[in-house]
């Protein structure tokens, strides 16, 4: 019995290590796009300046606050489960999911506005723009789109965590999935912390 418990204990540590290794690959997935952005920005600085003015910094800032708060609520839900407060943990994850929804709704209006202006890759208006602006909008849609996909995946992961807390399979003793789900959600926040100034603030 004690040997089983011993190997189980190692599982928790290695499970978290595995999650971090996965997060490293995520970092380089976005990192590649950041490097393309940096090089293109220095090559077409005037075009990037002009194109960035199209972005709505207010929506960007709102979504930054939304993600920062959601990062806190998910960190707090872990504190709650460690302190055996299951209901509070579920409530905090629920708030996180609502904030994820708010983020996606903002993104919907933001993208919808751009698409309404025919500013999407391959559109007729895009073809008439200078090369640097096409690059900017291409990178904008690619980076925010890939990030939004991560928001959706993170939301699904946290929903699973919430139901597992409800069924008692995640509890004060066993919360590796909860921990890893929270780590994933923080990664989504980390990526946005860089995306927001690069795309929305610097013009």
């Amino acid at each position: 019995m004690s040997t089983t418990e011993h190997s189980d204990f190692i599982d928790s540590d290695t499970g978290k290590l595995g999650m971090w290794l996965f997060l490293f690959t995520e970092l380089f997935l976005f990192g590649g796009l950041f490097i393309v952005y940096a090089v293109m920005r220095s090559k077409y600085s005037a075009d990037f300046h002009h194109a960035a003015l199209e972005l709505n910094a207010f929506i960007g800032a709102t979504n930054t606050v939304v993600l920062l708060v959601s990062s806190m609520t998910v960190a707090m839900s872990l504190t709650a489960i460690q302190r055996k407060q299951s209901n509070r943990a579920m409530g905090l994850i629920f708030i996180t999911l609502i904030l994820a929804g708010v983020f996606m709704v903002n993104k919907y209006f933001e993208w919808g506005h751009k698409i309404g202006l025919h500013l999407y890759p391959g559109s007729d208006v895009m073809k008439t723009l200078p090369h640097g602006e096409i690059m900017f909008f291409g990178l904008y849609f690619m980076m925010t789109g890939l990030h939004a996909l991560h928001v959706i995946i993170g939301g699904i992961l946290l929903t699973i965590v919430m139901f597992k807390i409800k069924s008692g399979r995640i509890n004060q003793e066993h919360y590796l999935l909860h921990e890893n789900g929270a780590l994933y959600w923080h990664l989504v926040d980390l990526i946005w912390i860089f995306l927001f100034p690069l795309l929305y603030l610097i013009t």
Binding site: F9, D13, G15, M72, A75, T79, Q82, E173, H174, L176
Partner: peptide, 23 residues
């Protein structure tokens, strides 16, 4: 999967971190 000897971050520290990030 017993990981109850982990460090527990307090709620107040989480609030402080959020406020610093917002500033």
């Amino acid at each position: 999967m017993k990981n109850h000897d982990d460090h527990i971050t307090s709620y107040s520290l989480n609030w402080t971190v959020l406020i610093v990030l917002l500033i």
